[in-house]
Design a binder for these strands. Structure first.
Lengths: 209, 209
DNA sequence: TTCCGCATCCGTACCAGTGGGTATTTTTTT
DNA sequence: AAAAAAATACCCACTGGTACGGATGCGGAA
């Protein structure tokens, strides 16, 4: 089996490559640190499995995985990430990836994931499984916001005042206040900070990082 | 030479240990993933050099380094971090660390840093050096936050009011207001949202779950 | 057709936080 | 011991957003 590794932290790459090559079922491992390199390697190297970080510069690992899955549906993907925020996990798994391993896990866990996925299965770190189960039990509290409310939310996080938001959206300051009120109600928060947290956890605002 | 490795990403740890052990001047390497473990190892293992991540859970690598430097001034410290925000770098180097290597660097760079620091020198990744030089040219009033200010910042993020923060820290509400004012000044922000963004970008606050 | 969600708008009282200060005590650094 | 930094506390005018109230029109679902 041939494996392609993608992570912009080169320091992790070298050690990881060595560890993975220690497995019998693995024939060769190529390691790259940008999405561009990865795309090139896809053609020449033809891996059966990709282990990718999520927070790679530019497009990011999720967009990369989407590309891979649509161009080469046969290739398996395992995410290797430090992020365990629900929205991240959701985005990642929506690409059709077969695994999600946290960077804080022991390396044996990644090896196990590789084995499992190579055999046609799936693998998720315990923390990720917990998230999946919770989502199952409490289905979607998240897309309850209307388009307009999301717009207002975005502008709140661009540090505009209600007045400025009103001017930007061509509505009265009063209306902005109402939207704001509704945002607090719907998100079950009652402070600006709480609202920000909610927005971040549910990936409702762009930017930041 | 004996080296202690601290990083909460265990996956990085195993590979790194192997790579470092390949060096002649290195006798043994111990790898731990929490600050508590690291403190224990300090007693029993007595390393001459520590390679530490900055964003380890709880206290964080910077507080850990401060402890180390005050209790064992002879021990050298190299930070291994993904962060290249000026604020982070400044705070890290204020501990008296001898090196700062980015995780995106090749592993050879870390090995070079270890060698250099072991011989009594210092080592910084190119990006970090650039920051240092720019700071030299523009003598930046940018101050780092005090312990108390960070405490207040944390509590702001726990959605406490100034009054509540005062009660929690046994100080007057007026004092909280002052700290808050200083936070805005030091971070060059003037809205709560701006402050939040600064804090998140420089991970000054423990994660939002 | 009726009903509901969405988006729009308004008033008023209230209060938490802002922004401009000043100033003392304690701790740390030099 | 002197100087600098940190932490503490206060005053006060002001503003932005909150918490109550309401209200209208419009389009799609039942």
């Amino acid at each position: 089996m041939k494996i392609l590794l993608l992570d912009d932290h080169k320091i992790l790459l070298d050690g990881l490559k060595f560890l993975i090559l220690g497995q019998q079922e693995v024939d060769s491992v190529e390691a790259v640190s940008t999405v561009e390199e990865a795309m090139q390697k896809l053609e020449s190297f033809r891996p059966e499995l990709i282990v990718s970080d999520i927070s790679v510069p530019k497009e990011g690992g999720i967009a990369f995985a989407k590309n891979v899955k649509s161009s080469f549906p046969g290739i398996k993907v395992i995410f290797l990430s430090m992020h365990e925020e629900p929205y991240m996990v959701k985005e990642a798994l929506s690409t059709g990836a077969e695994g999600y391993v946290l960077k804080k896990a022991a390396h044996e866990e990644l090896l196990k994931a590789i084995k499992e996925v190579a055999e046609g299965g799936m693998f998720f770190s315990a923390e990720i499984q917990k998230i999946l189960i919770r989502r199952m039990a409490f289905p979607e509290d998240e897309k309850i916001l209307t388009v307009r409310e999301k717009e207002v939310l975005e502008l709140i996080f661009e540090e505009l005042s209600n007045k400025e938001i009103g001017e930007r959206l061509f509505i009265s300051e009063r209306t902005v206040e109402t939207h704001r009120k509704n945002l607090y109600t719907k998100t079950k928060t009652n402070t600006l900070v709480g609202l920000l947290k909610f927005a971040l956890e549910n990936n409702l605002i762009s930017g930041l990082h």
